[in-house]
């Protein structure tokens, strides 16, 4: 479904990712791991169209989306749950979700809204609250819900567990597991290994903006020393 070849990207003159390659099959979950500054978020933001791509290619389905705008990528089925959630804080929860479904018809957006509320029932009572007033866990639920509203084929989630209480991490991972079981393809960026390895099929470890190791999640679980070497004991 997604093929990334020799991706080089960065900000202005700064190059954050040097020739990263990986691929994800439809319905698979890929975990991108690495220590702080390894280039995980830059890779994800480049896939979403928010970072200057200086080289390499990104193919989604059969189409080259290397130069596609974020809008085009959303239309083709790529949605992101970014680091720090980046909700529209002055908009209500409902409005945030409806912006997620901006490219869909009103009728489809309403159907998708019901699906989001089924997945995160806690949001039902928060629908008319300002997103900025929610707890971190609730904001993460809105962020995942907003991405669901876009009817993605590929959902990318950056640091889903960062700053959340364990109970909320459980809720979010259970939701991601359910989404995966519907056939949705996932890319998860995480520093916390335990949860992400329970959901991922494949693992790609980045170090200093390059791929340091790739393999199946089972291999990663069986070789903790590999992860130790690149994660700096973060897990």
């Amino acid at each position: 479904m997604l093929e990334v070849r020799d991706l080089v990207c960065g900000y202005g003159h700064l190059v954050a990712v040097h020739g990263v390659s990986f691929s994800v099959k439809a319905g698979e979950a890929l975990a991108i791991l690495g220590a702080n500054g390894a280039g995980k978020t830059s890779t994800l933001m480049a896939l979403a169209g928010h970072v200057d791509i200086k080289g390499g290619s990104i193919t989604f389905g059969d189409e080259d989306v290397t130069r596609a705008t974020p809008m085009d990528r959303c239309g083709r089925g790529i949605a992101i749950t970014p680091e720090g959630r980046r909700l529209f804080s002055d908009l209500t929860v409902r409005e945030n979700l409806m912006v997620g479904g901006y490219l869909r018809s009103m009728a489809r957006a309403k159907i998708n809204l019901e699906k989001v509320l089924d997945l995160f029932p806690r949001l039902k009572e928060r629908l008319h609250n300002r997103a900025g007033s929610l707890s971190g866990g609730e904001q993460q639920m809105v962020s995942i819900g907003r991405a669901m509203m876009a009817e993605p084929k590929l959902m990318m989630i950056d640091e889903v567990s960062l700053g959340l209480m364990p109970k909320n991490v459980d809720i979010c991972y259970e939701a991601l597991d359910k989404l995966r079981s519907t056939g949705l393809t996932l890319i998860l960026v995480e520093q916390s290994l335990e949860r992400v390895l329970s959901i991922a099929d494949q693992v790609c470890v980045l170090d200093s903006g390059a791929v340091a190791w790739t393999g199946s999640a089972g291999e990663a679980r069986g070789n903790p020393e590999i992860l130790d070497a690149y994660m700096g004991g973060a897990h």
């Binding site: 169209g49 974020p70 809008m71 239309g75 529209f88 908009l91």
Partner: peptide, 21 residues
């Protein structure tokens, strides 16, 4: 939807674009 898009764009234009605004 135009109003929502405007308010989303004011808060975070890059994210608004990510969802097709």
């Amino acid at each position: 939807r135009l109003g929502m898009a405007w308010r989303a764009t004011v808060t975070d234009p890059a994210m608004a674009r990510s969802f097709g605004v």
